[in-house]
């Protein structure tokens, strides 16, 4: 269900036409909306079971908790990949093919996969849909705004580069990227680091805690 929204929101970028300085970035604005729905899918695939109590049945059936998490991650990725590929593909349809376009589109797909897994990792750590969504949405949208309020602008600028929100801006930009806080591949690295961190913490807590 959230993945349906993700497809619509991501593909919706195609409506934004080809005007502006960076047509690719404009078209890929949908990724910034679609990532929320992908994150919701990642959260819901695990936290939804805590909401209904089904998780206890699941863990009785599959007591090896690593297997549960790996299976959920695999299922989630299998769902996100076609959504991301089709969504991003539709969004950039008709634009002149270039290396920069392919790079931005490919990174957008990878970004969406990573954000889904980020949602799964956070859900494993906090075990509640509402709390996990709050954390993920805060990270994706609120964090960059809050960082500009830091009293020390140098620190603010430094931390700003480390948020996934900055990353999605950087990795969809194809024109005039000199003024960006970090390069496109470094940006994907930032998102990957958040995902690995969240999944790692989630896995350890999921493994050790009571169901």
């Amino acid at each position: 269900m959230p993945l349906g929204f993700a497809l619509l929101l991501t593909a919706g970028g195609v409506m934004l036409g080809r005007g502006g300085i960076d047509a690719v970035q404009l078209r890929l604005l949908g990724v910034r909306l679609g990532q929320a729905a992908v994150a919701a899918a990642g959260v819901q695939i695990l936290a939804g079971e805590y909401g209904t109590g089904l998780i206890r049945a699941t863990l009785i059936v599959v007591p090896r908790r690593w297997s549960v998490l790996v299976a959920k991650a695999g299922l989630l990725t299998a769902g996100v990949v076609p959504v991301a590929v089709v969504g991003v593909g539709v969004a950039v349809i008709g634009l002149p093919l270039s290396d920069a376009l392919l790079r931005a589109a490919g990174e957008s797909v990878l970004h969406l996969i990573l954000v889904g897994l980020l949602g799964l990792g956070v859900a494993a750590a906090v075990r509640s849909s509402a709390a996990a969504m709050g954390i993920v949405l805060g990270l994706l949208y609120l964090a960059p705004m809050l960082l500009w309020m830091l009293p020390d602008p140098d620190w603010g600028r430094f931390l700003y580069r480390l948020t996934p929100a900055t990353a999605v801006q950087a990795l969809t930009t194809t024109v005039d990227d000199a003024g960006l806080p970090l390069g496109p591949w470094a940006a994907l690295g930032v998102v990957a680091a958040w995902t690995v961190g969240a999944l790692g913490m989630g896995a350890v807590l999921f493994q050790r805690r009571n169901a």
Partner: peptide, 23 residues
Amino acid sequence: RYAELAHPMRHCGALLDPHALHP
């Protein structure tokens, strides 16, 4: 140990939480 069993429900059946199901 329960977690070492490949098909745990063939070794041990449990009724602990009657609400642990998908509604």
